[in-house]
Amino acid sequence: MDWGAIFSNTVVWIISPETIAYALATVGLAVHFGYAGLLNFGQAGFMALGAYGYAISILSFGFPWWAGILVGMAASVVFALILGIPTLRLRADYLAIATIAAAEVVRLLFQTTVFDAFTNSADGLGGYHEGFRAANPIPKGVYGFGPFTYNETDWWVRIFGILLLAVVILLTWLLMRSPWGRVVKGIREDEDAVRALGKNVFSYKMQALILGGVFGSLGGVVFALPSAVVPGAYVPSLTFFLWTVLLLGGAATIFGPVVGSVLFWIIMSFLANVLPRMADAGWLPFMTNAQASIARYILVGIALMLIVVFRPQGILGNKKELTFNAR
């Protein structure tokens, strides 16, 4: 067993673009579920809109890269409105059903050949990097130490992602300590009570849905920054990974999504490295190498179940603040 390689293959995930993207999208989920009590099972759809909004507006319409990000955000606002207007008046569980379906509709619209000229259907989009990389202030070269050694482009993606994440977390923190956050948390507890106190509950739920959706689309943008946009990435299991990250870190916490995302990716890559090697070394006699690398998904699923049963408030959460049966 090459523990050195396993270690360095694992720690690089602390600041990988995927980790940052998951953290961003999960802050959005935290706004939805942790603070406003909205059950959104379609965060992958918001991420897809961010990624495709970014890529299509650059490739098909020649927008600058930053305008591409704005287009992605605007697309998620429109999606939140379409999703929210009919469903936010219903009970929370209906929103959950509608979001999972709507996110699939979004993904299939990007995958279908009907809009091939814009979306390149199932093959996805690539080669939209020029503008973003031209804006890179870091001079050409290789920087870093040990496993964290990257060229200027890789660093630029990571630094930009972390800056975006910092802004999003700051915004969430400012909002949730304000009277706005108080109303939103009140709605999570009992929307009729908040309505009786003269607050426009529908409007607040819509604002929260839009805000979390925009964060999700920024996650999609960061997801797309280093490589390509492929529709197969935005499947429901992406949403469920985000939920794992959220519950791991703590649903109603500011930094929970970051902690959760880092842990999630470290565990995933550690298992991806360790399990096949263990199979090769003959430690898992009942598994082949290929089976072992898939087994991590089973373990992550079991981990999600254990978290929900034994620590529903997550790592950073306050036991009193959020437990599932306390509504």
């Binding site: 948390k185 009140g186 507890e189 009570a193 009786a196 306390a326």
Partner: peptide, 14 residues
């Protein structure tokens, strides 16, 4: 309908 996971003071200020 007390808002269970808000503090008493937050309930009031709401």
């Amino acid at each position: 309908k007390a808002l269970a996971m808000l503090t008493v003071l937050e309930n009031m200020k709401l």
